[in-house]
């Protein structure tokens, strides 16, 4: 909590500075616009399927960065990770799980704050018309929906939990499938295509506000302990100036009224530390070597 208060104070101070910076950025925009654009990879760790929101955010970032911004979206986390590691992207918003597997190749840019913490939870959900199921363990032999094989909340955590319970996650369910997005896990469970699913708690909560009809069809049966929030990362060879510039824009988002709107219920970004993700690394290791 102390950190949060300090952060808020820092935000207030930085907001003023960013205001000045934004003005400066506006004036230099034309000359920079001809530059190579900033390529930012996006994954369904947040609601990346809202095109109106994305174009608004992109314009905002362009103004803040003074550069053209290109958002790159792919069907899975892995494709974004591959592009990032190949240097085809400058930054990407990825999940903690792929981050911990490739941390030595990446640079941590910023970690979002969700309800004041750089953490979120994994939710296990079942169809709302299933009143009995209370734990993941009760879904044995059922159909289960994962979001993405590179998702922490939507794949690693449920498998980790099953592993710690002495189950083999590969044959615990009769069938499992990937929806390649958290939101679609909610949909798949809502229509009972799957008997259960694992979903990013932030996504579920946000959907509960924006599209309550989707979440109302599901019921949360278990919540994970707080896990490090999917971070913004940069390719390893990103120039320090660019890294610092982009990090600065993200960190100041909460202080900007328009940026605040674009945070989609997040409270802002903090620089974060790689150690935040050690717990995820430990879970990954446990699942790999049960």
């Amino acid at each position: 909590m102390d950190r949060d208060v300090a952060l808020l104070e820092a935000c207030g101070r930085r907001a003023f500075l960013r205001g000045v910076g934004a003005l400066a950025a506006l004036t230099v925009l034309p000359s920079h616009a001809a530059d190579i654009p900033v390529r930012i990879g996006l994954t369904p760790v947040f609601l990346d399927d809202q095109m109106g929101f994305l174009s608004q955010w992109r314009r905002w970032l362009e103004v803040k960065l003074g550069r053209t911004v290109v958002f790159v979206q792919r069907g899975s986390y892995r494709e974004i990770m591959d592009l990032l590691r190949a240097g085809k992207l400058d930054f990407a918003w990825v999940c903690g799980y792929p981050y911990v597997r490739h941390r030595q190749e990446l640079k941590l840019v910023a970690v979002p704050l969700w309800r004041g913490e750089p953490c979120y939870q994994s939710y296990f959900i079942v169809p709302a018309d299933d009143p009995r199921t209370g734990t993941l363990a009760e879904l044995r032999g059922k159909v289960f929906a994962y979001s993405d094989p590179d998702s922490n909340s939507g794949y690693l955590y449920p498998r980790y939990l099953l592993t710690t319970q002495g189950e083999n996650p590969d044959n615990f369910f009769s069938r499992s499938f990937f929806t390649w997005a958290h939101r679609k896990v909610v949909e798949a469970v809502g229509i009972a295509l799957a008997d259960g699913g694992a979903v990013d708690g932030y996504v579920w909560e946000t959907l509960a506000e924006l599209h309550p009809d989707l979440t109302r069809a599901t019921r949360v049966i278990e919540r994970s302990p707080p896990l490090a929030y999917p971070p913004f990362v940069a390719r390893s060879d990103i120039p320090a100036v660019e890294l610092a510039g982009f990090r600065g824009v993200l960190l100041d988002m909460a202080a900007d009224p328009e940026g605040m709107d674009l945070l989609l219920r997040l409270d802002g970004f903090i620089p974060g530390k790689s150690e935040l993700f050690d717990e995820i690394a430990r879970m990954a290791a446990r699942v790999r070597n049960p």
Binding site: V143, S174, R175, I191, A192, L193, A194, D195
Partner: peptide, 8 residues
């Protein structure tokens, strides 16, 4: 209609 026709 997953409810009428469950997978598997």
């Amino acid at each position: 209609r997953p409810r009428a026709f469950p997978i598997g």
